[in-house]
């Protein structure tokens, strides 16, 4: 594919996509994942770690099978996302940034995800859900086994 072949004219621009690929494979930014990226790009391990730990979306610890990312920025809290967050915490017995013991869900309180017009909103893995209610949020999550 044209795009893929020429995608990164500058070698420097490879680190971000390489880390995404490593995270897809390893599930999180494990030491091995970072080491493999450093080896592949011929970069000092410290550079890779420094980069990976700067960006929120590179997971600093293992996560569950499904990651619930609920927005808790201004418009979403005006629309009740704090209540939703504590309901999720209660139901699954985890605080934000924790994972259920069965490994099914991780919970993340997000900064703005750009869905303020349809708040409150969340991203589960890579799927967007908007106009959440106390009822809809649980029926949506039922689909993530």
């Amino acid at each position: 594919m044209i795009v893929k072949q020429r995608a990164y004219e500058a070698k420097e621009a490879l680190l971000m996509p390489a880390l995404y690929a490593a995270q897809r494979e390893h599930g999180w930014m494990s030491p091995e994942a970072m080491k493999s990226v450093a080896r592949a790009l011929d970069l000092p391990p410290a550079t890779v770690k420094g980069f990976a730990t700067f960006y929120d979306m590179f997971r600093k610890k293992p996560v569950g099978k499904h990651v619930i990312q609920l927005c808790t920025n201004v418009t979403c809290i005006l629309s009740g996302s704090e209540d939703l967050l504590s309901m999720l915490s209660d139901k699954f017995g985890i605080a934000p940034n924790e994972t259920t013991t069965d490994g099914r869900f991780s919970l993340v309180a997000m900064e703005c995800i750009g869905a303020c017009g349809t708040a409150p909103a969340m991203i589960v893995n890579t799927d967007f859900y908007e106009n959440l209610t106390k009822e809809s949020i649980f029926s949506i999550l039922e689909n993530y086994k």
């Binding site: 795009v3 020429r6 995608a7 990164y8 004219e9 621009a13 971000m16 996509p17 880390l19 995404y20 700067f54 960006y55 929120d56 979306m57 590179f58 900064e111």
Partner: peptide, 12 residues
């Protein structure tokens, strides 16, 4: 002209 998408990772 060549154009590519660079996907960020959650840093405002």
């Amino acid at each position: 002209f060549h154009l590519f998408v660079y996907f960020g990772a959650g840093a405002y």
